[in-house]
Design a protein around this nucleic acid. Structure first.
Lengths: 188, 188, 188, 188
DNA sequence: CATGAATGAGCCTTCATTCAT
DNA sequence: GATGAATGAAGGCTCATTCAT
């Protein structure tokens, strides 16, 4: 598959898809996405062979972006708790700063359109987080659980905390702090 | 005295909707639901004025059923921890025993078709859980957080635990136990 | 076909049909008519075997009522012009006083649902008018035209005059007078 | 440069709509119109956003065509009576030569689907007729009536005459002549 | 006879995808 | 490669009519 001519257009479609899907849900017409992106109806399909393809790539891209945002500037020498808190804050900052992306990620996360393959690939973007989590829980009560389960529980706490931060922005810092201390109690 | 509206038929549509939506997602055709329920296409609309209406009632009904299942046989004199554990187990048992209902509940929970009004009404079915949670966290680190936030975090842990129990049934009891102890650490 | 039990119900359906059709057009659901009439959905069909049947009977009844309204109190000894003017006024009075009936008559008049048979039967209610018209035009320029044509032209003038009287009630008397003098010029 | 929108196709849909609606009434399915036009079901909606839109444009187009047909070759220097007679004949010729268009015009004229805006726009196509009428009635008994009323009455005579010409083609010329002389008596 | 639930054909419109230009 | 017209399957909902009660 030769890379299509314009990366700009591809990116424009991705951005447009995020906006439109955040606003209208996954059933948003591809035509609406194309219009928002400033490309034609048909062009969308030269960049993405099907709507499902677009959705899968979008999921992967957003999840990757989220993973990078969380990991940026991670203090490699710090204590596990400090590293984890760093990740937590960055993650939540990214999510609250990008509510559209966050919403789309949530929608895609439960959609059948996103294949297991994509989910697996997307999981890789959380490997930094996974490593810190692994380290953090090593001595604690979760030491013997499957890492994936611990990751899942941690993720659930983060998502919920994000929801409340978006819903009640005036208490966002308090929610973030309370969420993190809850996570730490859970792990260590 | 015409043929009276049949509760059986209404229930059959609800059951069919659960099965079909669990299998095909929320975009499942009403015709498929009607067929599965053994009623005509048009009959569905004498019981539910709209597909959205059906979805809202289904959400309410499933959530209520879940709430009842969790609360049944709650030992009113027991310690908070025992009461909470009772709720936790019943809840997770119901969810793992009814994966279709659970999946539909998850799909509807994030759908725009379900109105805020329905969400509010459905929330009432969790009041028993809320009360026990309130009591459980009273002396702990979450004492000063909004109850809704505590409820949200607890719910997130439960949902995640359920996911893993369904995905890895052989470890279901272990997941359930680990999830509960995590919850308790979070609260007390 | 034995006469159905209740003439009241039949009449209620007719009245309701007039109101509902005036408001919603000929595509108004039979269910809406039944509801307005205070009878059940199904009962309507014991009084009228089909919707088309209802429409035909309604047309006949309204046209007959209109004919009677026009002819009532006709001064049998008066000059043709006075008799015709009497008919004209009564007709227009009835129509402006009963805009719903008038509108329904207009809708049915151009509908395929109303059969030629019904049109023929309805035409009989205008026989009084036809006679006066026949007499009025006997010496005039329309003497040799088919009476039906003269009747049609006269009817057209009346309908148009009614339209304007309803649309501009403040000029209703002026329109009525102008319309009649135009008719008389046409005939004599 | 994609396939350009085709005027032919648009015209084909209009023609098909005229035929199908003349035969089946305004409730004719859009699918039948599309099939008759030789386009797909969906294509109809790239040319007309809505069935109502199609109906409005059809009304406007037919009425405009009728107005042009009536006015073509109008002898600008002739006497009012001759000009009016010219219009009358052309109008009736067009109508009797195009009974389908005429029928559709009649159906649309009383339909709620056609908006007041469309009616207003369509009225403009009769401005030539209006001018001649204005001139014709200037010295006569209708001199003081609103022009719209005079126009309405004239229109009514024309429509009725057309009906009879179509119904009894063998007397068409006689009806046309009688109708015109009636009109002239009405005006002058 | 009254009632209103049951039926299912039918309709308008949408939309992912294809393809002529 | 870009464009947007063309396609036609699909879906939610309506409604005249029938029929069980």
């Amino acid at each position: 598959m030769p890379r299509p001519r314009s990366d700009d257009k591809r990116a424009a479609i991705m951005t447009a898809a995020t906006q439109i899907i955040a606003a209208q849900g996954l059933s948003a017409p591809t035509a609406a996405i194309a219009r928002e992106a400033g490309v034609s109806n048909g062009s969308l399909f030269t960049y993405f062979s099907t709507k499902a393809d677009l959705l899968n790539q979008l999921f992967l891209e957003l999840k990757t972006e989220m993973g990078h945002a969380a990991s940026a500037g991670l203090p490699a020498d710090a204590e596990p708790r400090d590293q984890l808190e760093h990740l937590w804050k960055r993650w939540l900052d990214w999510a609250t700063a990008n509510p559209d992306k966050r919403r789309v990620l949530a929608l895609l996360g439960v959609s059948d359109e996103v294949t297991p393959t994509t989910h697996t690939a997307a999981g890789r973007s959380m490997s930094g987080l996974a490593a810190v989590l692994e380290w953090s829980r090593a001595e604690g009560p979760m030491a013997d659980e499957p890492l994936s389960f611990v990751l899942g529980l941690s993720n659930a706490l983060a998502e919920t905390t994000i929801d409340f931060m978006i819903r009640e922005p005036e208490h966002a810092p308090a929610h973030s702090a309370a969420g993190f201390s809850a996570l730490w109690r859970l792990l260590a």
